[in-house]
């Protein structure tokens, strides 16, 4: 989504968010992410005004003091930015890819099932499986920090069964243009 993204042409406007909308955003995030209110207050302190940056193709980025915090595509799930995931690695469920896949992930490719099911990969066990469409953080074999964020194309159980084609659609990865924007 952010493979080609340049602030000067792709941003259509910045507005501050109404407090009622901010409130619903807060509850939304707390229900979607695995984060408790106390920790979240640290990420986004109460009463701090947040800015909505509207971009092409219905992408909205929310930023606090000029620093992108999370983004959303149309009505999809809210994603934290990768820097936020590095700081709080537990907010999104984890999947892992093997070492061979890192190179492709860093070039913006979607993650294929075999890379997730192979020995170096990681998928949550059957009793805590994730449905298709869930937001996940992609971790890599032998690395402690996340490399990317994605949306499950198949449920985790289906990934194990089918083991072919795209398993996770990459949304945001290390080194893409959103990563390059440290301050908007």
């Amino acid at each position: 989504m952010f493979k080609k993204f340049s602030p000067s042409t792709d941003i259509s406007g910045q507005t501050s968010v109404k407090s009622s909308v901010q409130r619903s955003l807060r509850t939304n995030i707390l229900s979607q992410w695995k984060v408790d209110p106390e920790t979240f207050d640290q990420i986004w302190p109460k009463k701090e005004p947040i800015t909505l940056v509207k971009c092409r193709e219905h992408i909205s980025i929310y930023q606090l003091h000029g620093e992108p915090l999370f983004f959303q595509h149309y009505d999809g799930p809210l994603f934290p930015t990768l820097r936020l995931v590095h700081k709080y690695p537990f907010i999104l469920p984890k999947v892992g890819v093997d070492r061979g896949a890192i190179r492709f992930l860093l070039a913006g490719a979607h993650m294929m099932c075999p890379g997730l099911t192979s020995k170096g990969g990681y998928l949550p066990p059957a009793d805590s499986g994730l449905p298709a469409g869930a937001a996940v953080a992609i971790f890599a074999e032998g690395k402690e920090h996340a490399v990317g964020l994605g949306v499950l194309k198949l449920s985790t159980e289906d990934i194990k069964k089918v083991n072919k084609d795209i398993g996770v659609e990459t949304v945001h990865y290390l080194g893409d243009d959103l990563w390059a924007i440290q301050k908007l």
Binding site: V35, D36, E38, Q42, K87, F90, H145, V147
Partner: peptide, 24 residues
């Protein structure tokens, strides 16, 4: 560890040259 208290953020070291976390 996310019980009652706020969890302190993980400090990530970023590379000064390529901005990636060091391991990448």
């Amino acid at each position: 560890s996310t019980a009652a208290q706020a969890v302190a953020p993980v400090q990530v070291h970023y590379c000064e040259v390529c901005t990636f976390p060091l391991e990448y």
